[in-house]
Simulated scan of single mutants.
Amino acid sequence: MAPIPTPPTEPQDSPDRYIGLEAGQAERLARERGWSTVRSLPPGTIITMEYRVGRMNFEVKDGRVSRAWKG
């Protein structure tokens, strides 16, 4: 029987800590904390909502993170 694969892990990090940060600073910090993918989006951007382990999403308004979420 084949072994059960180990699911990938993501950093133990709260999206709330990025809110209010300048977008570039938030992106650098997220990568330093181990997020493999960081994406910054303007408010109202239409995106797919599939959950991707290791991805941090930022909604950026006026150069600052106004919302952040995993996946």
Score class of each variant (00 low, 15 high):
2 A>R: 12
3 P>C: 01
3 P>K: 08
4 I>F: 07
4 I>G: 06
5 P>Y: 03
5 P>C: 06
5 P>L: 09
6 T>D: 12
7 P>Y: 07
7 P>A: 01
9 T>F: 03
9 T>I: 09
10 E>S: 14
10 E>D: 12
10 E>I: 08
11 P>Q: 04
13 D>I: 06
14 S>C: 04
15 P>W: 08
16 D>S: 14
16 D>N: 14
16 D>W: 03
20 G>S: 13
21 L>N: 07
21 L>I: 08
22 E>L: 07
22 E>N: 11
23 A>N: 07
23 A>V: 04
23 A>T: 02
23 A>H: 02
24 G>E: 03
29 L>R: 15
29 L>C: 06
29 L>A: 15
30 A>E: 08
31 R>W: 06
31 R>F: 02
32 E>W: 04
33 R>E: 10
33 R>V: 07
34 G>M: 02
34 G>N: 07
34 G>A: 04
34 G>T: 07
34 G>I: 06
35 W>F: 15
35 W>T: 00
35 W>K: 01
36 S>T: 14
37 T>L: 15
37 T>G: 05
37 T>F: 10
37 T>D: 07
37 T>I: 15
38 V>C: 10
38 V>T: 11
39 R>G: 05
40 S>A: 14
41 L>R: 05
42 P>L: 09
43 P>H: 00
45 T>P: 01
46 I>W: 05
47 I>N: 12
47 I>L: 10
48 T>D: 08
49 M>N: 08
49 M>T: 11
50 E>T: 08
52 R>F: 13
52 R>L: 14
52 R>W: 09
55 R>V: 05
55 R>M: 12
56 M>N: 01
56 M>S: 00
57 N>D: 02
58 F>N: 02
61 K>N: 14
61 K>D: 15
61 K>R: 13
61 K>W: 02
61 K>C: 10
62 D>G: 05
65 V>E: 00
65 V>M: 08
66 S>T: 15
67 R>M: 00
68 A>V: 10
68 A>T: 12
69 W>K: 04
69 W>C: 01
70 K>S: 06
70 K>T: 09
70 K>M: 04
70 K>C: 03
